[in-house]
């Protein structure tokens, strides 16, 4: 149910992002969606791509601090109120969101997030029959 996301630790200064993007570009990796969260000193660059396992190896070999994180990607209709109802379903089961971002994919909205606790979210999604995407959808 979960998909692999690249989480990349980058310094909060010029030139660090382009280094990562260059490496991905040279390996012909396609970025589906990405987001940067930052503090004063550093940031975490989170990337969904078409081949996370290969991208991970490439970045790792280049000495970049990278982690493969398991995230959930829910697919929702591109209509007002759909994100609210999906998140409420999780929230009602006592699941909180550690971070989240969203994008449009083939006419559908996609909510990408990590939860705490991680396992319980999967249960809720199964039981409440929420629609989710798998890695194969992006490959």
């Amino acid at each position: 149910m979960t998909i692999k996301q690249l989480s990349i630790f980058i310094e909060n200064k010029g030139g660090t992002l382009i280094k990562v993007l260059d490496l991905l570009s040279k390996a012909n990796i396609q970025i589906i969606a990405s987001t940067i969260a930052d503090t004063k000193d550093y940031g975490i660059y989170r990337v969904l791509c078409n081949n996370p396992s290969q991208a991970y190896i490439i970045l790792k070999e280049a000495g970049i601090n990278v982690q493969l994180a398991d995230v959930i990607a829910l697919s929702i209709d591109d209509e007002p109120g759909r994100a609210a109802s999906a998140i409420k379903t999780l929230s009602d089961d006592g699941i909180s969101i550690l971070y989240m971002y969203s994008f449009l994919w083939k006419g559908k909205g996609v909510l990408v997030f990590r939860t705490d606790p991680a396992e319980k979210a999967k249960e809720t999604i199964m039981i409440k029959k929420l629609s989710f995407l798998t890695e194969a959808d992006f490959a």
Partner: peptide, 14 residues
């Protein structure tokens, strides 16, 4: 320097 990015959770890094 960070040896391994052991989490992508800011709270744990902080």
């Amino acid at each position: 320097e960070l040896e391994e990015l052991f989490t992508d959770d800011f709270q744990r890094l902080l």
